[in-house]
Design a protein around this nucleic acid. Structure first.
Length: 456
RNA sequence: GUGGUUGUAGCUCAGCUGGUUAGAGCGCCUGAUUGUGGUUCAGGAGGUCGCCGGUUCGAACCCGGUCUUCCACCCCA
């Protein structure tokens, strides 16, 4: 063999067994989405660059895969940028399309574009791959699937409540117990910034705060100081670094810190509302936890922020996230449409389930019975039975070549096909099929009618 | 994007301070067994040592670049 071929960095092939497991997860998510009243849409894998660029911050722009224009793109390139070797500047003149980076922004585009056909509130789900030009590492790929459910056109907090239930429903269905649904509210974060008089540094502030569990209180404070946040300000919000206790106890403390901020108080009320409803309705296997350090995610969240953490004994980043964005469609010209949504990270859920061995043994669909090929006449005789078995819903197949018995048996064995039929001249004569159980090794001769019965 | 790490047979890996024809286990193929797999035994095939260049009498081994793997940062599902 010449140079061994390979997939591009950060992408993967999926074997039959992997596809079966992935479909298992997809099916569970999909069925819950539909039970909650969401309808599927799909959008193109690539969008016009201007739809995507600038929506995810500077960092996001860098991670968007750009598609080179067709034809003689260089002759139309920005001359000045080309001479200066300014990659950033030249991009817009040689690339007009880009691979989608997430499902939320294309969805916003979809809503604005189809606004006259949509009944609001619009509940849609979307399960498609997205691409990011990131450096791969564990649980991080350059091509991965997102499973999104969003509602647009309603400001009701009952949606937030339902999304918490939806997370709980999906993970319970998957047998993935003990996940933590972390919730926070952008208004609380804004409240913090307001109280310390650093509204302008909200992003810097939240990005630093988000790292609390990773770099600790001192690390966060250090980063905040470097960003220009004063010592007095840090002292004012000190309690949030060691926020402990129940949901109610936490909101109690927050009320104390945020009593001078209207926005902050509103955030607390919203959290309390969701928490009260969930306490009343109860969750199956997940836990709802208030986490004020939760700030990551796209800077368009305006209300609730969600993130789902894998069970504690697994080392994995978040396996889901979401939140409310009051003005997402605003960037495409449609004002006053509030949306809220959540996302499931299929690839990471897969890794977690694999690690915890949560896939049922039955996910892999396999051929139930293989007919040994003895030659032309016998093959035809076998296909008669195969036809019949298939019509009753049994996956059956004929080995395509009249190869040596050993080779054919070996094939059945390797593929873990549980039954083999040996029907040579003798069986054809007697109008019987030699049915062999590959696990027990037992063998018997049965009629075509009895074949199916034996496989049940 | 920054710093580090990895690459030898289909797979998992040995390969001494640079020194003849680069090894093992598993897998694969053939036969023992021309109508019976998973066990056993005998034999066999399979490698531009990631790629390009440099140093050297001589490179899998040293140096540079590049691609890939994994990790940390950034960011994120």
């Amino acid at each position: 063999m010449a140079q061994k071929p390979s997939t591009p960095k950060g992408t993967r092939d999926f074997t039959p067994a992997e596809v079966a497991k992935r479909n298992y997860i997809f099916d569970k998510i999909k069925s819950q989405f539909e039970k909650f009243g969401f309808q599927p849409i799909e959008t193109p894998s690539f969008e016009n660059s201007e739809t995507l660029m600038g929506k995810y911050g500077e960092e996001g722009d860098r991670l968007i895969f750009k598609i080179l224009n067709s034809g003689d793109f260089l002759s139309k390139a920005n001359e000045e940028a080309y001479k200066e070797k300014d990659s950033l500047k030249i991009t817009s003149s040689i690339s007009e399309k880009a691979l989608r980076y997430d499902l939320t922004v294309p969805f916003a585009r979809y809503v604005v574009q189809h606004q006259s056909e949509i009944e609001f509130p619009f509940k849609r789900y979307q399960i498609q791959p997205v691409w990011r030009a990131d450096r791969p590492q564990k649980g991080r790929f350059r091509e991965f699937f997102q499973c999104d459910a969003d509602v647009v056109g309603s400001e009701s907090l009952w949606q937030e409540v339902e999304f918490v239930q939806l997370y709980d429903a999906v993970f319970s269905e998957l047998g993935l117990e003990g996940v933590t649904i972390k919730i926070n509210n952008r208004k609380i974060l804004s409240g913090f910034a307001e109280v310390i008089g650093e509204q302008d540094r909200l992003i810097d502030f939240t990005v630093a705060l988000d790292k609390l569990d990773k770099i600790g209180e001192e690390g966060v404070k250090k980063e905040m100081r470097e960003k220009g946040i004063s010592e007095v300000a840090l002292e004012k919000i000190r309690p949030i670094f060691s926020l402990k206790g129940s949901f109610s106890e936490k909101t109690e403390i927050l009320s104390g810190i945020l009593n001078s901020s209207e926005t902050g108080k509103q955030g607390i009320e919203e959290l309390k509302f969701v928490h009260r409803a969930i306490s009343e309705l109860t969750l199956k296997t997940a836990a709802l936890e208030l986490d004020v350090t939760l700030a990551r995610g796209l800077n368009y969240y305006t209300g609730a922020i969600f993130e789902v953490a894998a069970p504690e004994n697994v080392q994995m980043g978040s396996i889901g996230g979401g939140g409310r964005y009051d003005d997402l469609t605003g960037i495409f010209g449609l004002k006053n449409v509030s949306g809220v949504g959540i996302s499931f990270g299929l690839d990471r859920i897969y890794l977690v389930m694999e690690e915890l061995r949560l896939f049922p043994a039955t996910v892999t669909q396999n051929t139930k019975i293989l007919f040994i090929n003895f030659g032309e006449a016998e093959a035809l005789y076998a296909l008669r039975a195969i036809q019949k078995l298939r019509s009753t819903g049994i996956a059956a197949e004929l080995y395509p070549d009249a190869a040596k018995m050993k080779k054919q048996m070996n094939y059945a064995n390797k593929r873990e096909i549980p039954y083999v039929v040996l029907a040579g001249p003798e069986e054809v004569m007697a109008q019987r099929y030699g049915l062999k159980n590959m696990i027990s090794g037992e063998q018997e001769k049965v009629s075509i009618e009895d074949l199916a019965k034996h496989l049940k």
